[in-house]
């Protein structure tokens, strides 16, 4: 049964009938694409972004499979120290050489990638969740709560983040999980600021008034109508955050206040890098982890910029 063949019935009636029968998908053909479908289509056409995505996927898979790859394929233990084989240059046995304690650099790099990537990804997710929740609360409760939240945001925004990270890192030896949480606790303001102002304007839209008129509760309106509209904004705003956090972690670890040994991250692998630049045999220990960080962050930034281009409604 198609719309055309229906007997004496207006088009509107026909649609209603079809909808009642649960067959509305019959109308989908030729229907306009949703926001997400359009974004995905644009993203797929962006070759640079797709290439970066591929490289990042490879790095992620190698890191996730670190245990299998080092024990089965490379036959090395990342924590095994060998006093007789320190500062070895890359060889068939150790593809990327060994470090100051004779540990295999490649396997340490893979294991380190797990922590570095996890800190970046989860740190960003928590940042976004905190940012959205606090931003919506500010706009929703308004007045005193809003004033208080804005005060906290302005205050946190004025203190250079690295200072706070250094201090907290020095006072409490941070585990990777604690560092992730700390990044989120310090990083949410810029998202909240964005979400807050967009909720203020969304609140005035007709469909929100319609939802209110239908008797939806405030929480339901927030969840069903506000949050979905805020998500694209947040994705665009946070697109580069994963890379930024990986960079922050590496700088913090380089200064000695990040993740503490023996846990290795790409940042902690560079902790002693400053001493190594003077040792000709140890240069691979400076170059390799840095290249890994730079490559990963570069991919993340390209993907971030690609996502922004695909989703930013102003660019349509």
């Amino acid at each position: 049964m198609s719309v055309q063949n229906l007997p004496v019935m207006s088009r509107q009636e026909a649609l209603l009938k079809l909808a009642e029968e649960g067959r509305l998908e019959a109308l989908r053909e030729g229907a306009p694409l949703s926001f997400w479908q359009m974004a995905l289509r644009r993203l797929r056409r962006d070759r640079l972004t797709m290439a970066a995505l591929l490289v990042l996927l490879l790095i992620t898979l190698l890191s996730i499979g670190a245990r299998f790859i080092s024990s089965q394929l490379l036959g090395v233990d990342p924590d095994l120290t060998q006093i007789t084989a320190t500062f070895k240059p890359p060889s068939a046995e150790h593809w990327l050489g060994t470090d100051a304690l004779g540990r295999d650099q490649l396997s340490r790099l893979l294991f380190g990638g797990r922590i570095s990537l996890a800190i970046g990804f989860f740190g960003t997710i928590f940042t976004a969740v905190f940012g959205i929740t606090i931003g919506i609360s500010a706009a929703y409760f308004g007045r005193r709560v809003d004033d208080f939240i804005m005060w906290v945001i302005n205050t946190l925004d004025s203190i250079p983040q690295l200072f706070l990270l250094l201090i907290v890192g020095a006072l409490f030896e941070l585990s990777p999980a604690a560092l992730t949480l700390l990044f989120a606790l310090l990083g949410w303001p810029f998202i909240s600021r964005l979400v807050r102002s967009s909720v203020f304007s969304l609140k005035e839209r007709e469909y929100i008034a319609a939802a209110e008129a239908l008797g939806m509760s405030d929480v339901a309106i927030m969840w069903r109508h506000i949050v979905p509209n805020v998500i694209p904004l947040v994705i665009v705003a946070t697109a580069r955050q994963v890379g930024n956090l990986i960079l922050a972690e590496s700088a913090l670890s380089f200064l000695g206040f990040g993740v503490q040994p023996p846990t290795s991250t790409w940042g902690t692998m560079l902790t002693k890098a400053q001493q190594f630049i003077l040792v000709p045999d140890a240069r691979h220990l400076v170059v390799v982890p840095g290249v890994m960080i730079a490559l990963t962050v570069l991919c993340l930034f390209i993907i971030g910029d690609g996502l922004r281009d695909a989703m930013d409604p102003r660019l349509n």
Partner: peptide, 22 residues
């Protein structure tokens, strides 16, 4: 311009020292 953002600054500094000084 993307690469300069993606490099860890401290690492870039160390590379420069390694090359131009050492």
């Amino acid at each position: 311009s993307v690469l300069f953002d993606a490099l860890p600054q401290f690492w870039f500094g160390l590379l420069l020292i390694m090359f131009f000084s050492v």
